[in-house]
Simulated scan of single mutants.
Amino acid sequence: MPSFLQSLFLVPLTLLPIINPVGVAPIVINAAGGDDKVLKRLSRQVAINGWVVIMVSLLVGTYVLDAFGISLPVVRVGGGLLVAYSAWVMLTRNETDEVQTAVVQSSGTDLTEAEIVRRSFFPVTFPLTTGPGCIAAAIALGAQIPRSPVPYVMGAGIAAIGAAFTAAVVYLVYRNGGRLLMRMGEVGTLVMMRLMAFVLLCIGIQILWTGWADLNHIPT
């Protein structure tokens, strides 16, 4: 039982600090257009998307990287660039962009399920929720699953439950944290988003530097 519990909570305890759902919550609000119903649907869809990405990374990530000859440091470098770029766009958004965002927000309640699914993946699910750091960590966890048939099925099942718990935490934080931030008003949310964009920029640079250091064997 202790070994089972340790394996069960290994996935959420490893991935949640990397995902940092509290930091991404303001971006989810922006994607939801400030509408509570859309926020609920978007949070649910992001949690589902995140679970799928984590499971794919856990179960087939190592095989895909081996097939294409891609190393984990290269994944970190590419993902770090993508996160940093997304954060930079958020930081440098001008007043015209804010007007365009307000137009999108005014029609947020009319979004269909298909539109929410499309918008929920980029950039909310990837790279902001299950980004390169999360994927790399999930691949590393998946490499520890035994390859023998019976142990593999058991390990994959435990990993699936752990990934589901991780996705549930992400949903709860996005759903309830988003409601809290919406009460801060437009100005408060905008300030929070600018601060978190800077943090995301730093995270992207850190991921990029970690990958670059691994490629060049530089101590981090």
Rank of each mutant, 00 (worst) to 15 (best):
I161G: 07
D35M: 01
E113Y: 06
Q45G: 01
T112Y: 02
D35I: 04
V52R: 04
S7P: 07
L16V: 12
V52H: 03
I18V: 15
L16N: 14
A25Y: 15
Y152D: 06
Q206P: 04
A163K: 07
A168Q: 08
L201C: 11
L201V: 11
V191S: 06
H217R: 05
R118N: 04
V11F: 10
L82T: 12
T109S: 14
V60F: 10
W209M: 15
V64A: 00
M90K: 14
P17S: 04
I116V: 12
L39P: 06
W209A: 15
H217I: 06
L58A: 05
Q206R: 15
M196K: 08
V89H: 14
V77M: 13
D66M: 01
P17A: 04
I29N: 10
A31V: 04
I48G: 01
I27E: 14
N20Y: 02
V89T: 13
V150F: 13
G178M: 03
L91W: 12
R44M: 08
T189G: 08
T101I: 15
A163R: 04
L181C: 03
F121S: 00
L111T: 12
A67Q: 00
T129R: 01
L180V: 12
L172P: 11
T92A: 08
N94K: 02
A164H: 03
G133V: 09
L39F: 00
G133D: 14
D66Q: 11
F122P: 01
I116Y: 08
M55D: 05
P21M: 09
F165V: 15
T189K: 07
V104R: 14
V38E: 05
G80H: 04
P149D: 14
M90I: 10
G157E: 09
R175G: 11
G178F: 01
G177A: 02
L201M: 12
L141D: 13
V173F: 07
L10C: 14
T129H: 01
Y85Q: 15
F121M: 02
G131L: 10
L111R: 15
T112S: 09
L72E: 06
G69K: 00
V56K: 03
S43Q: 03
V46G: 01
P146M: 08
S57E: 00
P127C: 01
M193E: 12
A156P: 08
C134E: 08
A164P: 06
V56S: 03
